[in-house]
Amino acid sequence: MAELYPMLKHLHLTAVGLSLLLFVSRGIGMLHNAQWISKKVFRILPHVIDTILLVSAIGLTIALSQYPFQADWVTAKLIALFAYIGLGVIALRRGKTKTVRTLAFIAALAVVGYILAVAITHSATPWA
């Protein structure tokens, strides 16, 4: 599995970039009441990209032998991922007011920043 690491890492980083770009685009669209964010492609494409992201992440954990609840930094990323998903749902779909959606969008971006810092440092406390 180690021989697949470079390909998995490249796939994962590409999916991260696409997922983040799409989330930010949809968030800005939400802030401006853009009609394009409700089109079918923007409801399906994030799921496709995020599936690739998840599958590549699982492959990377296996290739690195770094598993949730065994490696603190992987556990931190997993917990933060759940927070990001919840905040993203509020920001793009479930928020009752634009203020709630905006705050959830900003919080989701902050969580993404944390996830990226953890990924780069391989530390659950990247600021330390």
Rank of each mutant, 00 (worst) to 15 (best):
Q66F: 05
S19R: 05
F42V: 09
K77T: 06
K98A: 11
V41K: 08
V112R: 01
T75E: 08
L60F: 07
G59L: 12
L109T: 01
I37T: 10
I49M: 05
H122F: 00
I106R: 10
G27Q: 03
L54Y: 12
M1N: 14
L20D: 07
L11P: 10
V16K: 12
Y114E: 01
M30P: 05
R43Y: 05
L53P: 02
Y84P: 04
A80T: 10
F82H: 08
S25G: 14
I52H: 11
Q66K: 15
W36N: 13
F105H: 01
H12K: 12
T125N: 13
H47R: 11
K77N: 09
S19H: 07
Q66T: 07
L11W: 13
V118M: 04
Q66I: 01
Y5L: 13
I90S: 13
I52P: 03
A83W: 10
F105E: 00
K96H: 12
I62W: 08
W127S: 09
I58D: 13
R101G: 14
A104T: 10
F23K: 00
G113W: 00
I90G: 07
G95I: 05
L4K: 15
L8W: 09
L103F: 14
H32K: 13
S123F: 01
V74P: 03
I79E: 00
A57T: 07
A117P: 01
H122E: 10
A110P: 00
T121D: 10
R26T: 07
G17K: 12
D50R: 08
K77V: 09
H47A: 06
L87Y: 02
H10M: 15
V16I: 15
A71H: 10
L54C: 12
T125G: 08
A91H: 07
I49H: 13
E3R: 15
H47V: 04
V100R: 06
P68T: 15
S123H: 08
A71L: 07
L103M: 07
G27W: 00
L18A: 08
Y67M: 13
H47I: 06
P6V: 11
I58L: 14
A124E: 10
T75K: 09
T102Q: 05
F42Y: 14
L20V: 05
L103E: 00
A124D: 02
L54G: 01
A83Y: 03
N33Q: 14
A108K: 01
L13Y: 08
A83T: 02
G27F: 01
H122L: 03
V74G: 06
T97V: 14
A119P: 04
N33D: 15
L81P: 05
